[in-house]
């Protein structure tokens, strides 16, 4: 996957996906030989050890009232954890908070990144500088980003509130106001992670051959038509990639609310992964935490598949 992303930067998304797929196919063809299996072994071991096994073991755990310190004493309860989940108001609250965060972040992260990418692509001269500027927040860690925005959103003398004070009376206290806390976290998140989408979409845009636009110009297409009939369809695969990655990332939000608001005020920013963490590490209820993880997993799979089909409908 990392190779794929690296290739996306160098080759452009479409090309990179093609290459990646080709590699998968080739890999399959080579499978017959014993050496081939040997070469794949380190990855396979890592995959089974760090992906497949935890995935299956997590499901296994979710069927138990899991006692992490004495696993042999765990009690099998079938789908009991899932049943509890359905009737758990804290779960639904966290899920709704998460969905709200997704709604707040995904559209700007995709649309704004697309607009930025198209805009920067036009301005050939300042491109390198703009690319650097837009990308720079992404290299910061979640802790640093959160700290910066805690600072900016702070209630007593915080930068944003201070300046808003000149245009409105009593501006919101962003991080302690249940209405604004999640919005504030969303703003910080967009600022922080838009760069990834931006870079991918910029590469995708630059991968669209200029001659298509020349042909369209001769065909009498306006800028809008070129965007609609050429740019967007040509960027479809990277766009699907970006949309899915963004959905998945936003559903898994943890660090920003954990640091910026600790889930408050009044649990309005308590997200599903925070709930999972609290349940597991504060409540030591790992079976239940595993069940939450699995439900999240199912949600993400569903959202990704739906996204994929909706977006590639015209293809």
């Amino acid at each position: 996957m990392l190779d794929l992303i690296a290739a996306m930067r160098t080759e452009g998304p479409r090309q990179a996906l093609n290459l990646w797929w080709q590699e998968m196919v080739d890999e399959y063809d080579r499978r017959e030989s014993a050496e081939g299996i040997l070469f794949a072994l380190p990855y396979l071991i890592a995959f089974v050890g760090f992906m497949l096994f935890p995935l299956l073991y997590g499901f296994y755990m979710s069927l138990y009232d899991w006692d992490a310190l004495n696993p042999e004493q765990s009690e099998f309860i079938g789908l009991g954890n899932y049943q509890t989940l359905v009737n758990d108001p804290r779960f639904w609250e966290a899920l709704w908070n998460t969905v709200w965060f997704v709604i707040l972040t995904v559209p700007p992260l995709v649309i704004l990144a697309l607009l930025l990418a198209l805009g920067v692509n036009r301005n050939v001269k300042g491109q390198t500088l703009l690319r650097t500027i837009f990308f720079s927040p992404y290299i910061l860690t979640v802790a640093v980003v959160s700290l910066i925005w805690v600072e900016l959103f702070a209630g007593e003398g915080g930068f944003i509130r201070y300046w808003l004070g000149f245009v409105m009376e009593d501006p919101p206290r962003f991080l302690i106001d249940p209405t604004w806390a999640m919005v504030s976290i969303a703003v910080a998140t967009v600022w922080w992670s838009i760069a990834f989408n931006f870079i991918i979409l910029l590469a995708a845009r630059q991968n669209v051959p200029d001659r298509l636009y020349e042909a369209a110009k001769l065909d009498g297409a306006s800028s809008y038509r070129m965007m609609r009939d050429i740019t967007i369809p040509q960027m479809r695969n990277p766009l699907i990639f970006v949309v899915i990655i963004t959905f998945v990332g936003s559903f898994q939000v943890f660090g920003q609310p954990y640091i910026m608001t600790d889930g408050g005020p009044r649990f309005s920013t308590h997200t599903i992964v925070m709930y999972l963490y609290t349940t597991g590490f504060a409540g030591r209820d790992f079976g239940y935490a595993a069940a939450i993880g699995y439900v999240l997993f199912l949600i993400l799979i569903t959202v990704s598949v739906v996204n994929y089909y909706v977006l590639s409908e015209n293809e």
Binding site: V150, E151, G157, G158, F159, I259, D262
Partner: peptide, 17 residues
């Protein structure tokens, strides 16, 4: 520890403004 982050940055805030 009640979110020390929010409270501890106070001293630098005036500078930030």
């Amino acid at each position: 520890t009640d979110r020390p982050v929010r409270s501890r940055l106070n001293n630098r805030r005036r500078f930030l403004q």
